[in-house]
């Protein structure tokens, strides 16, 4: 991946980022490149159907943390109606979900739980970081808040706003559907990159 994480030889940089994978480094499939299965015509068509069905029925695990969760509830209610895009089935169990909308600020105490829930979700799975706090810590740059959930789980879509309005969340969902349709891979797992593990994380 071209990410130099080996700082043992040199003098440690005090300002080295805690997060080693930036969004700019997120590997993306260039436009026009074919997915790996491109050689097999039948499988390509099957994959297209699979992707279509995956992006049309994204089932989110209900991971409401704070303020943004209320806007997420609004998005699933009658006025905004996220079910137009097939994502209204909020599952209480991560085993039945393939999308995690992290709605709200993530505290240090909650971070292992988030990771645990993420690990329980079956592949393929995607993550939307909803709101400023989930994306970067927001106004809470302090001891208690993880400065962005991308330090804990790989995030596909960041939705800005404090809190984002439901239409912004729906736009983020549409972007994720576009991403799935184009077979863009998710960013690398931050824990795999930094070599960290959380209690209960599988592998």
């Amino acid at each position: 991946m071209g990410i130099d994480n080996d700082t043992t030889e040199r003098r440690p940089n005090p300002w080295a980022p805690v997060q080693y994978v930036t969004n700019a480094q997120t590997p993306r499939a260039p436009r026009g490149t074919q997915p790996p299965e491109a050689g097999n015509i039948i499988l390509t068509q099957v994959n297209k159907v699979l992707d279509w069905s995956r992006r049309s029925s994204l089932w989110p695990v209900s991971f409401g943390l704070a303020c943004c969760a209320i806007e997420m509830m609004s998005a699933s209610a009658s006025r905004w109606d996220i079910s137009r895009f097939g994502a209204e089935v909020f599952r209480a169990s991560p085993r039945q979900a393939d999308l995690m909308i992290v709605a709200g600020r993530l505290s240090v105490k909650m971070a292992p739980v988030l990771r645990h829930i993420y690990d329980q979700m079956p592949d393929p799975k995607w993550v939307i970081a909803m709101g400023a706090c989930a994306s970067c810590g927001g106004v809470f740059n302090n001891y208690a808040i993880v400065q962005g959930v991308d330090k804990v789980v790989p995030v596909d879509i960041f939705v800005p706003g404090c809190p984002p309005t439901p239409d912004m969340l729906i736009y983020g969902l549409n972007q994720l559907q576009e991403k799935i349709a184009r077979r863009m891979p998710s960013p690398p797992d931050p824990l795999a990159v930094t070599g960290q593990t959380y209690l209960g994380s599988e592998g």
Binding site: L65, A66, C67, G104, R105, S107, K109, M110, V113, V139, F140, N141, N142, Y143, A144, I145
Partner: peptide, 26 residues
Amino acid sequence: IGYLHTGIEKTGEGKSYFQTLVLTDR
């Protein structure tokens, strides 16, 4: 409890009275 501990009180002590207002929303 404490899974949403945000440190609002500590953050508010580092901001002016005017700025702390936005923390109370949350």
